[in-house]
Design a protein around this nucleic acid. Structure first.
Lengths: 226, 226
DNA sequence: GCGTTTCCTGACCATGTGGTCAAATTCCAA
DNA sequence: TTGGAATTTGACCACATGGTCAGGAAACGC
């Protein structure tokens, strides 16, 4: 008799700004149908949210893309809000993983270039996720404030310390570490978020992401050279 | 007896994807009241559109921000669409001006750094405009396709040629010129579009735009050095 | 096969939304 | 001061939207 079987409420706490009092922590089993349909719904929701933002997206549209009825969506997720939350939660991990992997014991330039490369690959392979994130931040991060000021800031602070130590050792140029990280985000996500513009300006016969990979490799090599 | 007195239809043609057949090109006079109110409305619309995107914005919200009644909005602009168009049209000029000013006869590095500085200032002083633009492109530029593939591409092509000639003369490093331009856009607009994130990560006691100005100056100096 | 749980949907509802309209009010030149 | 034009708005409309609900259809354990 469990309502909204697929919604993994426990995992939402991470992103939620206001804490829910209850969280029934219901029957976890997840049947195969549940697995499949909630995934279908999330993919459709990602498609629509990433294009129109939270307010601009409609359940009817998501239902159409998912090929399911509107009440069926609500069977799996209690609300539009919940779909959005589920997407954001999942997104944040994917997004931060590459930065987490920055190895303090590795070669500084190689580590940073590897991070840049992985971020470009994320932009190429998951542009909708990138746009979903961009939409959320553009709107002032109303549903991610906590995660940004919390997990994300903590991680950036930690990695900034690593960068600073590399700079102190003279292994890379001395630069404001946070802004260095911002520039990696800006440059890589630009190719996903502004894809339309990039392609229109480049015209035909270009592979934006391949070119971006080379260009950014050069850029950061020159920037980081002590 | 002119309806929608403030809407400057002639100027909209530039951005419009589908060409309007008529365009009455009505009485241009523009009374002081018209001037004031249409400006108030556009400011309010900018505020709301830039935050929620076109579909996420509502006339009621815009009316509330403008301090005017909803029918009064429609008295000045025939539709929500028209407000959006008016904003985009105005925006594009402001946005491209600094790039237009890139002087082929000036000192290459100085010219590019000046462009970067002006773009950062735009981000600092007109963040809403930047976000409006970002929102539009994120959604696939449904209302700016023509302008992007037209005016903007033309301008970028022209300036790319200038950059290439500078590279040929060995005055700046050889780089793909379009991507060089993209990186200027990405890095400068990031500070307006992702302001929330930037501030959350930096924490208190920072002046994001001032720091960005210095950082980007360094970045492009190193990047452009032959 | 059968009872129970899971899954699905047509019909519906309250509210929000873009936009209209007739009438009221304000502005301004003669 | 007054008459016509410009400006403003309350009331309204058709439609879209998020979400509900009662009941039907599959799926599953036995």
């Amino acid at each position: 008799m469990a309502l909204h079987p697929a919604a993994d409420w426990a995992s939402l706490a991470a992103v939620q700004t206001t804490t829910r009092p209850e969280s029934p922590s219901m029957s976890r089993p997840q049947t195969r149908i549940q697995q499949k349909n909630s995934e279908t719904i999330l993919q459709a929701a990602l498609e629509v949210f990433s294009t129109y933002g939270f307010r601009g997206a409609t359940l009817d549209q998501i239902a159409e893309v998912a090929g399911l009825s509107k009440p069926n969506l609500i069977y799996y997720f209690p609300s539009k809000e919940a779909m959005h939350q589920a997407l954001l939660t999942r997104l944040l991990d994917t997004w931060l993983d590459p930065l987490r992997d920055l190895d303090p014991d590795g070669d500084p330039v190689a580590e940073i270039l590897r991070y840049v490369r992985r971020k470009i690959e994320l932009s190429r392979d998951y542009p909708r996720e990138s746009r979903l994130f961009a939409n959320e931040i553009l709107q002032g991060a109303p549903r991610m404030q906590a995660a940004i000021a919390g997990d994300l800031k903590t991680l950036v602070d930690a990695k900034s310390a690593v960068l600073l130590s590399w700079m102190d050792e003279g292994r890379i140029a001395r630069l404001p570490p946070q802004h260095l990280i911002f520039s990696i985000w800006a440059l890589t996500q630009h190719y996903a978020d502004f894809d339309t513009q990039v392609r229109a300006v480049l015209g035909d016969g270009h592979d934006p992401f391949a070119e971006a990979g080379d260009y950014l490799d050069t850029l950061f090599r020159k920037l980081l050279a002590p």
